[in-house]
């Protein structure tokens, strides 16, 4: 059997790549996708623990995290479109003064 630590290590690698992407990227949509990557790595941790400890709670939390991610996608992409309409740019450096 594959040890639990391997899944946790894979999840840590994915989360690290996502966090580095949020720090490096300046395109708003690319940063959004890196956040989705981090959410997915945490989901992998939840499912691995749920499967190894025979507890269904982890998979329910993953289900709710997916719902929150869908809501985040709707609102976040709406905000990105609003910023793009006002500034003609997706660069987050152009939207650094906290008002439209």
């Amino acid at each position: 059997m594959i040890p639990l630590a391997w899944y946790l290590a894979l999840s840590a690698v994915l989360f690290t790549i996502g966090a580095a992407g949020v720090l490096i990227k300046r395109n708003a949509i690319a940063m959004f996708m890196c956040i989705e990557l981090m959410l997915n790595s945490v989901n992998l941790t939840f499912v691995a623990f749920s499967s190894f400890f025979r507890d269904v709670s982890g998979q329910l939390i993953v289900f709710i995290v997916m719902t929150v991610a869908a809501a985040e996608a709707a609102v976040g992409l709406g905000i990105i479109i609003a910023i793009f309409r006002n500034r003609e740019s997706l660069d987050v450096d152009d939207a650094s003064i906290l008002k439209l």
Partner: peptide, 24 residues
């Protein structure tokens, strides 16, 4: 900073060790 984050995660995984149950 990402490397530091991964080192922290690796330390936690190493100190937790193996789970008592096996999958499947």
């Amino acid at each position: 900073l990402a490397a530091v984050l991964f080192a922290e995660a690796a330390f936690v995984i190493y100190s937790v060790g193996d789970s008592p149950y096996s999958s499947l």
